[in-house]
Write a protein that binds this DNA or RNA. Structure first.
Length: 411
RNA sequence: GCGCCUGUCGUCAAGCGGUUAAGACCUCGGAUUGUGGUUCCGAUAUGCAUGGGUUCGAAUCCCAUCAGGCGCCCCA
C-alpha cells in the first residue's frame, strides 16, 4: 500500500530540531516582554474578506496564494500572515481604549500557496509584533530595535537592515504618476511582468531583474525621478527623525529606495532585514508602518507599526542542535526497582528512563550510553544497601552513593 | 504559473545496457556473561519515485506523471 506523505510545501518539525524551535520561542517571549509587549494568539482561519480588505486585493498573496474554503456558506481562509488577524482582534476587543501604545507579539503557522523552494514553504511559521497607537518615529525606531535585538539574542550576525520611506498616500500617488509618465514611452519594451506592474504596482517596477528593463530604468530622466525625494515635508521629517534615532542607537542600516514591500497597507517606514547566509529567499524580517489599516478594517483611526520574521529561515541560520539526551537511565535487571527509582527521580524533576524490556546488563548500559548522560546502576548489592551507582557516561567516572544523594550528582 | 537540475535500503551512497544491486552509518540479534560508547560475528532493497515504452535483456536509454533542489515571480 502506498504510504501517505507530507503535503508539498509542508514539513514535520522533528524531535532533533525541537531545541532550536524552543530556543526561538523562548527568546521571543523574553525579548519582546522586555519591551512591554504581550503575546496574542489569533485563530488560524479568518473570514476571507479580512485578508482581501486588510492585506489588499491587488496583492499576489490575496490573489493567488490563499487557502480558501467554504463552510456553511461562509468563505474562510487560512491566514497568509498575521497582521490582519491581530488588527481584527485589536478592533473587536476595543483595544484602542487601552493606554497607547498597545504592543502585541505573536508566533504561529501561516499558509501561502506558493511554489516551495529553499526558505519557502506553504505552511511556515512567523514571529512578529504589532504596536498600535503611536504615530511618532520613536515607535518605528523601537520596532527596529526590537527586531535587531531579537536577532542578536538568537546569536545571528551578518545581517543587514534596509530602510525606505514610501511616503503617505498623497505624496506616493504623485510619485507614481510622475514615474509612470517617464516610463510610459518605453512601456512596449518592458518585460511582460513589468507591463503588468506598470498598472498594478508601479513602485515594484524598479527592482526588476531583467537586463532590458534595468537598462531602461537606468536612463537619466528616469533615474532623476527615482532618486528624487518625492515624499512630502511631513513624511520627510518623520523619516529623518527615524534615521536620527537609528544613528544614535548605532544601528547600521542602508537606504534602499527600491524597497517597496508587497503588502498594500504600508505607508512611510518600510524595512527589511536580510541575511548574507541564505539563498535567494534571504529576507528574515520584513515590516513597516501601516497607519490606515485599522481604520480601513472598521476600527478607530489608529496608527501602527509592525514586523514579521520567518522562523524556518531563522532556524536554518541558528542551525546548531543541542543536547537533547535524557538525564538519567536506570540500568538494572530488577524492573520493579528500576521503575520505582526512575519515578522517584522524575518526581524530583529529573528526566529519567530505564530499560522496559529487561535486557542483559551490558545491553542496558549500551542503551544508556546512547540516550542518556548518566547511567544509574542498580544491582543486587545496591538494592540491598539502598544505594545506587551513578556513572557519568561522557567521562566514565562513577560513584556509589545512597539513593537520596544520587540526585545531586547530575550536572 | 515559467525555466534548469535531481530521484537506488531509515541515512550517505557505488552502479554508466547483461553484477547474486557494492560499501558505510543507523537499527536489531549474538559473542565477550556487573561496566557501555573499541572489537568480532550475523540480520536487514526480489528492489532502484510511479506508470508506460525501446531492447533478447533496463536502476542504467526515451516519454509522461509525481516529488525534491535551484532560479524567476512574489514574499518571511
Amino acid at each position: 500500500m502506498a504510504i501517505i506523505k507530507v503535503q508539498k510545501g509542508t514539513k514535520d518539525i522533528l524531535p532533533s530540531e525541537m531545541s532550536v524551535w524552543h530556543f526561538m520561542e523562548e527568546k521571543a517571549n523574553e525579548i519582546f516582554t522586555k519591551y512591554g509587549a504581550k503575546e496574542i494568539r489569533t485563530p488560524i482561519f479568518e473570514a476571507t474578506e479580512l485578508f482581501a480588505r486588510g492585506v489588499g486585493d491587488t496583492t499576489d498573496i490575496v490573489n493567488k496564494e490563499m487557502y480558501t474554503f467554504e463552510k456553511s456558506e461562509r468563505s474562510l481562509t487560512l491566514r497568509p500572515e498575521n497582521t490582519a488577524g491581530v488588527v481584527r482582534s485589536f478592533i473587536e476587543n476595543g483595544m484602542h481604549r487601552l493606554s497607547a501604545p498597545v504592543k502585541l507579539w505573536y508566533k504561529g503557522p501561516m499558509f501561502r500557496y506558493e511554489r516551495p523552494q529553499a526558505g519557502r514553504q506553504r505552511q511556515f511559521h512567523q514571529v512578529g509584533i504589532e504596536v498600535f497607537g503611536i504615530k511618532q518615529a520613536t515607535c518605528d525606531a523601537e520596532i527596529i530595535l526590537m527586531a535587531v535585538n531579537y536577532l542578536k539574542a538568537l546569536g545571528l550576525n551578518d545581517l543587514s537592515v534596509e530602510l525606505n520611506s514610501l511616503g503617505c498616500p498623497t505624496c506616493r500617488e504623485e510619485f507614481k504618476t510622475k514615474l509612470k509618465a517617464v516610463i510610459k514611452p518605453y512601456l512596449n519594451d518592458l518585460c511582460p511582468d513589468c507591463q503588468a506592474r506598470f498598472e498594478k504596482n508601479p513602485l515594484r517596477l524598479l527592482d526588476c531583474k531583467v537586463e532590458e528593463c534595468k537598462e531602461i530604468y537606468a536612463k537619466p530622466e528616469i533615474q532623476e525621478v527615482i532618486q528624487s525625494d518625492f515624499i512630502c515635508e511631513d513624511c520627510a521629517n518623520h523619516f529623518n527623525e527615524l534615521k536620527k534615532y537609528l544613528d544614535e542607537l548605532n544601528i547600521n542600516y542602508s537606504i534602499n529606495k527600491l524597497l517597496v514591500r508587497g503588502l498594500d497597507y504600508y505607508n512611510r517606514t518600510v524595512f527589511e532585514i536580510k541575511s548574507n547566509n541564505l539563498g535567494s529567499q534571504n529576507a528574515v524580517c520584513g515590516g513597516g508602518r501601516y497607519d490606515s489599516l485599522v481604520k480601513n478594517l472598521g476600527g478607530e483611526d489608529t496608527p501602527a507599526v509592525g514586523f514579521a520574521m520567518g522562523m524556518e529561515r531563522l532556524a536554518s541560520l541558528i542551525g546548531e542542535k543541542q543536547d537533547n539526551r535524557t538525564t538519567a537511565f536506570v540500568v538494572s535487571n530488577d524492573s520493579l526497582e528500576a521503575i520505582k527509582l526512575a519515578e522517584e527521580l522524575r518526581q524530583e524533576g529529573i528526566s529519567c528512563e530505564f530499560d522496559l524490556t529487561n535486557k542483559k546488563f551490558t545491553k542496558q548500559l549500551e542503551k544508556a550510553s546512547k540516550v542518556a548522560k548518566f547511567a544509574l546502576i542498580l544491582g543486587e548489592d545496591e538494592i540491598k544497601s539502598n544505594q545506587v551507582t551513578v556513572k557519568n557516561l561522557d567521562t566514565s567516572e562513577q560513584k556509589t552513593v545512597s539513593r537520596e544523594l544520587a540526585k545531586n550528582l547530575f550536572s
